[in-house]
Design a protein around this nucleic acid. Sequence first.
DNA 1: TAGTGGTCTAGACCACAAA
DNA 2: TTGTGGTCTAGACCACTAG
Lengths: 234, 234
Amino acid sequence: MTLSSAKTDWKAIRRDLLGRIQSGVWKPGDQIPREVELAAHYDCTRSTVGRALRDLATAGFLDRKRKGGTTVSANPVRKAPLEVPIISEAIRKAGYEVGYQLLRAGERQLDQTAAAELGLPDAARFLSIEALYLADGTPYQIEHRWLLPATVVGLTPEILEEMPADEWLLRNVPLTRAQIMIEAVHAPKDVADALQIAPDSPSLLIRRTSWRATQLIGVLHLYHAPGHRLVTGI
Amino acid sequence: MTLSSAKTDWKAIRRDLLGRIQSGVWKPGDQIPREVELAAHYDCTRSTVGRALRDLATAGFLDRKRKGGTTVSANPVRKAPLEVPIISEAIRKAGYEVGYQLLRAGERQLDQTAAAELGLPDAARFLSIEALYLADGTPYQIEHRWLLPATVVGLTPEILEEMPADEWLLRNVPLTRAQIMIEAVHAPKDVADALQIAPDSPSLLIRRTSWRATQLIGVLHLYHAPGHRLVTGI
DNA sequence: TAGTGGTCTAGACCACAAA
DNA sequence: TTGTGGTCTAGACCACTAG
């Protein structure tokens, strides 16, 4: 009641409700009024307050249960959105001139550890791609991919000379599911050489395994130069 | 038309539409039918298809503009949700027994680099907290916080002996905004000692600066033991 | 069993951007 | 100017679950 009560605008209602949560008027675990009561208070229909409540629930601020009512989340598990863009876009966005250099491309036996990760026989042959990305001429990251030849028909080393694998894949084999792992490792020797950094420098490694529907596309390993930061927020 | 056309269920409609996008029936940049047409096709009201379309738009698959219609996103910037839970919850979720050990707590001058990050005069005095977390008895991560005393009144070293700062903060000073940076570093000597790892081991460092509204709460540095992985997916 | 949220309808008006 | 999505209403029925 003391807080604003802009009428009949679900965004305003959401702001008002969020305000009560964040200011502590409603504390974690508290039961908040039912939709009908809120609708009466805000002088609108149940659908409208429902939309505001639904939005807050998907954002993790509220827990909702039929018959059980709506409560303020006890464990506000905030999710920070981590963008997964095309590599060159990421560099461009940061304001740098993009450089791309194909190091190696060709069919290869899958790396032992990578095979184990995928639960595949390492007898399987993959299209192995190694490339270097530069930002303003400075080595920025190394990408190493293993792609399942059957799912990337048409992708040739010639194409890769001009176009990063990311771009080709986005247009030709869009992923529908991916698993991502982020960890800190010592840069392996070949990566350290390519990035022109000291061997055993700390490197941020992003590993991504991607599928199109249930069909495996491949595995991506991204080694970043020391000092590289992943930035996000809530 | 060829794809399923389950009637009057927005989730089914969303599945159907997403199927057309991911199977390539509708390609990036394509204009898709208007709400009225889709409503006719699925034999439901505009509100219902609208909900499905809105959902796909917020997920990044569609771009919508008044009068301009709805198009398939050309740049599907997929966002991987990175969870930011209470530390002990994270360990518990992974199935381990949680250990917590306060190493140091007391007022201190803010660290030089940390002060620069915040744009604060390093003359400011902060509550400095260092703690060790264990998973099944094994050192797991080191947290180092600098908290602005004015915003955490009531938080004493005695409380911190028993309760991780995270838990106290969640209940008493919930954050409304945070900036998060993730990078790979060499573990500093004191951190390496506490984690019982070799000096200069690669460590995943998560840095978080948090605010309540516009009021700075403090800075958190989390050093992880080598091998620790952040896992997410899309 | 009863009460709560989840969904859908059929209609209306409005805001914005393209033509 | 006009067509599109964005939002709201007033009502209804249903699904889940707490008591």
